[in-house]
Design a protein around this nucleic acid. Structure first.
Lengths: 138, 138
DNA sequence: CTTGAGATTAAACTTAACTCAAAGGTTAAA
DNA sequence: TTTAACCTTTGAGTTAAGTTTAATCTCAAG
């Protein structure tokens, strides 16, 4: 199949597919006599795999080190290790996000519950204190 | 104070402070006769505020629209709206991360629980199916 | 007087993951 | 035959948030 059809099948742009090839994600790509790239249908699976891995948070660099030449022969242990490390990364990110969200909710609370009798400047100082003291303690 | 001292006080690099000025985050910056920048001690508070906002997930562009000229006069309603929107963004991101993590754990499970009697290729197909079918359903 | 630290500028470089444009070759259909 | 739809390559542009470099200036101390 030519690149256009592969693009249609996978939902990626042709330029993106060429880009993946250029950074070594696709290995050797066949050519027809006229110079056009030609792909086996397996290529669609590879591209969808790359896509899925990206959505799971892997960079193209990481994906390249994970993808075996032949779809179907992985280094099980290395793969498992990488997957577990990625889960840990995601968990760390989740913790940071939770902290950020909590900090923002605190600030929102400070702004919302401003005592009626306090003036703007004093309230700003109060809010500022909560931001600088509490939001960047990561 | 000169830029070097401000940098030392805030923990930012001088180049970063100049960069913030260049994109309009710091408003007017005073100059001495010799051309050196000169800052009031308030500037440290502004920089720490920027830093805290960044850590909470705001882009410099967003921060610029939030920062008032004078530290202490905010548009309360706009600020509250922005903060709430950012909390919603964070929650969306948290949901995506949770989905990613769950997907990865599924894949890890698939790899780990490979039946002893199945060969590598068949297992790869099985795992591949779970990845392509389950990981990119976001 | 010289040395070293610190200040100035503009412009280029960095990373990631692409996209876009230009200029041209190929092919199927009308 | 001509036109439209594909394909090719190379190289530059994009975004974000800075960093780095180079060339030059200022200033305080010894």
């Amino acid at each position: 199949m030519k690149i256009g059809e592969l693009a249609r099948r996978t939902g990626l742009t042709a330029s993106r597919i060429r880009f993946y090839e250029s950074i070594g994600l696709l290995g050797e790509v066949g050519r027809r006599a006229n110079g056009y790239r030609t792909y086996p249908s397996e290529a669609a699976v590879t591209l969808e795999l790359i896509n899925a891995a990206q959505k799971a948070g892997f960079s193209l660099d990481e994906i390249r080190t994970l993808l075996p030449g032949e779809l179907g022969r992985w280094d099980h242990d290395a793969l498992l290790g990488t997957l577990r490390r990625k889960v840990a990364e995601i968990e760390a990110l989740e913790a940071k996000l939770a902290a950020s969200r909590a900090g923002l909710l605190t600030v929102i609370g400070q702004i919302e519950t401003r005592p009626e009798d306090i003036d703007c400047t004093a309230n700003a100082r109060r809010v500022l204190g909560s931001i600088l003291g509490g939001l960047d303690e990561t």
